[in-house]
Lab assay of single mutants.
Amino acid sequence: ILQTYRAIANYEKTSGSEMALSTGDVVEVVEKSESGWWFCQMKAKRGWIPASFLEPLDSPDETEDP
Results as ranks from 00 to 15, higher is better:
residue 35 S to C: 08
residue 60 P to S: 13
residue 10 N to C: 08
residue 43 K to Q: 12
residue 48 W to N: 03
residue 18 E to I: 04
residue 36 G to A: 03
residue 12 E to I: 08
residue 60 P to V: 13
residue 59 S to W: 08
residue 3 Q to W: 08
residue 23 T to I: 15
residue 14 T to H: 08
residue 30 V to D: 03
residue 63 T to H: 13
residue 41 Q to I: 07
residue 24 G to Q: 03
residue 66 P to I: 06
residue 60 P to I: 12
residue 40 C to Y: 01
residue 1 I to K: 13
residue 29 V to Q: 00
residue 20 A to S: 09
residue 44 A to N: 15
residue 56 P to Q: 07
residue 55 E to P: 00
residue 60 P to H: 14
residue 35 S to P: 03
residue 23 T to V: 14
residue 63 T to M: 12
residue 65 D to Q: 13
residue 42 M to Q: 13
residue 35 S to W: 04
residue 29 V to I: 07
residue 16 G to I: 14
residue 47 G to S: 02
residue 53 F to Y: 15
residue 8 I to T: 13
residue 40 C to D: 00
residue 46 R to G: 06
residue 24 G to T: 02
residue 59 S to P: 13
residue 51 A to S: 14
residue 64 E to C: 13
residue 19 M to Q: 02
residue 62 E to N: 13
residue 39 F to T: 00
residue 65 D to A: 14
residue 38 W to G: 00
residue 18 E to V: 05
residue 62 E to P: 12
residue 24 G to K: 03
residue 24 G to H: 03
residue 49 I to P: 00
residue 11 Y to C: 05
residue 2 L to F: 15
residue 18 E to G: 12
residue 12 E to T: 11
residue 45 K to A: 12
residue 64 E to L: 11
residue 19 M to A: 01
residue 36 G to W: 03
residue 51 A to G: 10
residue 14 T to A: 09
residue 46 R to A: 10
residue 25 D to Q: 05
residue 20 A to R: 06
residue 61 D to V: 13
residue 14 T to G: 10
residue 58 D to M: 09
residue 50 P to F: 01
residue 6 R to K: 12
residue 50 P to K: 05
residue 59 S to Q: 13
residue 61 D to Q: 10
residue 25 D to V: 01
residue 38 W to D: 00
residue 62 E to K: 14
residue 48 W to Q: 01
residue 12 E to C: 11
residue 39 F to Y: 14
residue 8 I to Y: 02
residue 55 E to I: 09
residue 60 P to F: 11
residue 12 E to R: 12
residue 37 W to H: 05
residue 29 V to E: 01
residue 66 P to A: 15
residue 20 A to N: 13
residue 16 G to H: 14
residue 2 L to H: 15
residue 56 P to G: 05
residue 34 E to C: 09
residue 1 I to M: 15
residue 13 K to A: 09
residue 2 L to S: 15
residue 61 D to T: 14
residue 28 E to G: 04
residue 28 E to H: 09
residue 51 A to C: 13
residue 47 G to P: 01
residue 59 S to H: 11
residue 8 I to C: 08
residue 51 A to R: 08
residue 34 E to N: 11
residue 12 E to W: 06
residue 25 D to F: 00
residue 46 R to D: 05
residue 15 S to H: 13
residue 20 A to V: 05
residue 42 M to D: 10
residue 47 G to K: 00
residue 47 G to R: 02
residue 51 A to L: 04
residue 65 D to M: 12
residue 35 S to M: 07
residue 50 P to C: 03
residue 61 D to G: 13
residue 15 S to R: 09
residue 51 A to D: 05
residue 13 K to H: 07
residue 24 G to L: 01
residue 9 A to S: 11
residue 13 K to N: 12
residue 13 K to Y: 05
residue 25 D to I: 00
residue 37 W to T: 04
residue 11 Y to G: 02
residue 12 E to A: 06
residue 41 Q to A: 08
residue 55 E to K: 08
residue 55 E to H: 05
residue 17 S to G: 11
residue 38 W to K: 01
residue 64 E to F: 12
residue 27 V to F: 01
residue 8 I to F: 03
residue 1 I to G: 09
residue 33 S to R: 15
residue 58 D to I: 09
residue 31 E to C: 06
residue 41 Q to R: 11
residue 35 S to G: 10
residue 56 P to W: 03
residue 44 A to S: 14
residue 60 P to C: 12
residue 30 V to E: 04
residue 58 D to L: 11
residue 38 W to H: 03
residue 14 T to W: 03
residue 30 V to F: 05
residue 64 E to A: 14
residue 1 I to W: 07
residue 42 M to E: 06
residue 58 D to G: 13
residue 41 Q to V: 07
residue 61 D to H: 14
residue 34 E to V: 09
residue 29 V to M: 01
residue 18 E to R: 04
residue 54 L to F: 03
residue 20 A to I: 04
residue 58 D to H: 14
residue 24 G to I: 02
residue 5 Y to Q: 01
residue 52 S to K: 14
residue 59 S to A: 14
residue 49 I to E: 00
residue 27 V to H: 00
residue 52 S to C: 10
residue 18 E to Q: 15
residue 63 T to R: 15
residue 46 R to S: 13
residue 2 L to A: 10
residue 54 L to I: 05
residue 39 F to E: 03
residue 16 G to M: 10
residue 6 R to E: 04
residue 23 T to H: 09
residue 1 I to P: 07
residue 26 V to I: 12
residue 52 S to N: 12
residue 66 P to Y: 07
residue 13 K to E: 07
residue 23 T to W: 06
residue 30 V to Q: 08
residue 38 W to S: 01
residue 6 R to Q: 07
residue 27 V to Y: 00
residue 6 R to Y: 04
residue 28 E to I: 05
residue 58 D to P: 14
residue 39 F to R: 06
residue 14 T to D: 08
residue 32 K to H: 03
residue 14 T to Y: 06
residue 63 T to Q: 15
residue 21 L to Q: 01
residue 3 Q to V: 11
residue 62 E to A: 13
residue 48 W to T: 00
residue 17 S to E: 15
residue 43 K to R: 10
residue 13 K to W: 04
residue 9 A to M: 11
residue 4 T to G: 07
residue 39 F to I: 03
